[in-house]
Computed example of a mutant assay.
Amino acid sequence: MLTAKQHELIRFIQTRLEATGISPSFEEMKEALDLKSKSGVHRLISALEERGFIRRLPNRARALEIVKLPEDAVSAPRASAPTPANDAMAAALTAKAVAPEPANDVIDIPLHGRIAAGAPIEAIEGQSSLPVPAALLGPGEHFALEVSGDSMIEAGIFDGDFALIRRTDTARDGEIVVALVENEEATLKYLRRNGSSITLDPANSSYAPQVYRQDQVQVQGKLAGLLRRYH
């Protein structure tokens, strides 16, 4: 069962697609639903995507597809009295031209600091935020970490990069994860399981793999994207 805001958002997306064939921007969705930030829109879209109601089209930053509608929205629409939400939707539909617009939706995600020994992720939460193009993020909750060191350079991850992490406590072998070792050290490495042990593999031949007992390692998230600044 969808929440009221999820219902409202999927109806707005459907109305815009039927009227123009173009997905609404995060800013338009934020205004139509009277939300305070585009992060709220991202959470609603992620929830709808995870439940199979909408799908993001690949290689297009601002492309959403309705996969299915809630059962109570499938029947023919009935006339209803104007509401602020309906007025906002109508205004958003008429105020924008039909021609495609640049895909420049940006949302802020938490920036937890640098991945470094001696500082669990939880100990540095809430310090700041990082603006990220929404197209780089898939479903789920995300945070960012600034990479420290060169242990993952052969995977194209360099010192000073910002790793975009999807928060999860599970991962498959071969995925790049943020692992918390003995509740003290956060590290970005490839995950590999070997029976009762876990190996954290670097992507730099100068470094040796790190082997731990399963109870010593906690997966905190897995790599979803990367941002790099050029000076």
Rank of each mutant, 00 (worst) to 15 (best):
Ser80Val: 15
His142Ile: 01
Gly221Met: 02
Leu93Ala: 13
Ala79Glu: 15
Ser205Leu: 14
Pro139His: 08
Gly221Ile: 01
Gly195Asn: 07
Leu111Lys: 06
Asn104Tyr: 12
Asn194Leu: 08
Ile121Thr: 04
Ala103Cys: 11
Gln14Lys: 13
Gln127Ile: 14
Ile54Met: 04
Ile10Glu: 03
Arg16Pro: 06
Gly225Ile: 04
Ala116Gly: 13
Ile13Met: 08
Lys38Cys: 11
Ala155Pro: 01
Asp108Ser: 13
Arg60Asp: 14
Ser46Trp: 05
Phe162Glu: 08
Ala79Tyr: 15
Glu125Phe: 09
Leu136Lys: 06
Gly126Asn: 07
Ile45Tyr: 01
Ala90Phe: 15
Lys189Asp: 01
Leu145Gln: 04
Thr83Trp: 09
Val211Tyr: 01
Pro139Asn: 06
Ala79Asn: 15
Arg51Val: 06
Gly138Thr: 06
Leu136Trp: 07
Ser128Tyr: 08
Pro24Gln: 10
Leu136Asn: 04
Pro209Asn: 08
Ala155Ile: 03
Glu101Ser: 13
Leu9Gly: 03
Ala91Trp: 13
Tyr212Pro: 00
Ala90Ile: 15
Gln218Val: 11
Arg78Pro: 06
Thr3Glu: 13
Arg43Lys: 14
Ser25Pro: 04
Glu154Asn: 14
Ile153His: 08
Ala155Met: 06
Leu180Arg: 03
Gly52Asn: 08
Ser197Trp: 04
Val217Ala: 02
Pro102Arg: 09
Ile165Gly: 00
Asp108Cys: 14
Tyr230His: 14
Ala203Pro: 02
Gly149Phe: 06
Asn204Gly: 06
Leu145Cys: 07
Ser129His: 13
Asp215Gln: 09
Thr170Gly: 08
Ala95Glu: 12
Gln6Asn: 11
Ser197Lys: 10
Asp215Cys: 09
Pro58Gln: 07
Lys5His: 13
Glu18Cys: 12
Ile153Gln: 06
Ala73Met: 15
Met29Ala: 15
Gln220Lys: 11
Thr3Trp: 12
Pro202Tyr: 01
Leu33Trp: 03
Pro100Arg: 10
Gln127Asn: 12
Phe12Pro: 02
Gly140Ile: 04
Val132Phe: 05
Pro70Ala: 09
Met29His: 07
Gly160Phe: 10
Leu136Tyr: 02
Val177Thr: 00
Ile121Ser: 03
Leu111Thr: 01
Leu191Arg: 00
Glu141Ser: 12
Phe158Thr: 07
Ala90His: 15
Val219Thr: 07
Ile109Gly: 00
Ile157Leu: 01
Val147Lys: 00
Val67Asp: 07
Lys96Gly: 11
Asn204Asp: 09
